[in-house]
Design a binder for these strands. Structure first.
Lengths: 147, 147
DNA sequence: ATCGTTGCAAACACTTTGCAATGTG
DNA sequence: CACATTGCAAAGTGTTTGCAACGAT
């Protein structure tokens, strides 16, 4: 057991449950995202793919499908690149990204969840419902801090 | 006095202070960003520009200049579009965006600032310094909540 | 056999670069 | 007059679409 979290399900089965066909691409993609517990760009997914990676179009489509079903989350770091992260059954968390090398680390604390409703109730004139939020920290990792 | 905040300076003077030339484009851009207290895309800047808007290339360059000097902030909402917001002397804040119509509202509360250092000290193995953070809420505004 | 999924090429949207012309200090 | 700034055209990057071929159930 060297996994950080145990999702306790068979990937093929899960895909079918979600209404997908258990294709090579989607199986491998889900495995890859599960194994790599951090936000990945399509480019980096292709880089770390074992064997011949699928066409990037296919990846974008598969990721869009998985996002629609709540299996994957999209994360942004103010750099015009979409990052994708496995979400299902993972604890809610945020990220720190190094602005020099792009290293990403999870931040497990989240005080935002508790604030969400009170923020709306007290502060917002125009908004009625908040269904998600993102918190990203920008900084420098140990390797880059003195570069 | 119908401004939300009083920045108390002359725009031309400020631009020169920052090392820029006080050109028509930069003056009007800064005024526009100051007047519109929320994140704007380049497209929307062109839309609301009074008179003939400058070339978008010019806007991107001017915005990059202003960001470099800390006058403007870039904000992202997980949609691959860069938004730009006046920053100088404005209180630190975050945003709520409506995922249906794109309406943006400021959120003045921020508990993150206080947490920043303790997050790093206690939680992070790889990061030494955090210099900024972003918090965005996604939801639906009153107009869109029942659409 | 049906209909979801894929690959390829082309289109798209947003942003950046090169270079000559213009404007500011 | 020097040099920052601008406009235009072209290129760059990340992402999406159309369509025919393929593959899972």
């Amino acid at each position: 057991m060297n996994k950080k979290y145990d999702y306790g399900f068979n990937v093929c089965q899960k895909l079918r449950e979600l209404g997908f066909r258990a294709t090579k691409t989607k199986i491998a993609l889900l495995e890859l995202l599960k194994k790599n517990d951090k936000p990945l760009s399509v480019k980096s997914i292709i880089d770390i793919w074992e064997g011949k990676a699928p066409n990037q179009t296919t990846l974008y489509r598969a990721l869009a499908d998985l996002i629609k079903k709540g299996v994957v989350d999209r994360v942004d770091f103010n750099n015009s690149i979409a990052y994708f992260e496995y979400k299902l059954d993972r604890p809610h968390h945020h990220h720190i990204i190094c602005s020099k090398c792009g290293e990403i680390e999870d931040v497990s604390s989240c005080l935002i969840g508790n604030l969400k409703n009170s923020i709306i109730a007290k502060k917002s004139k125009k908004f009625k419902k908040i269904y998600s939020h993102s918190v990203e920290f920008f900084g420098n990792c140990l390797n880059c801090v003195n570069k």
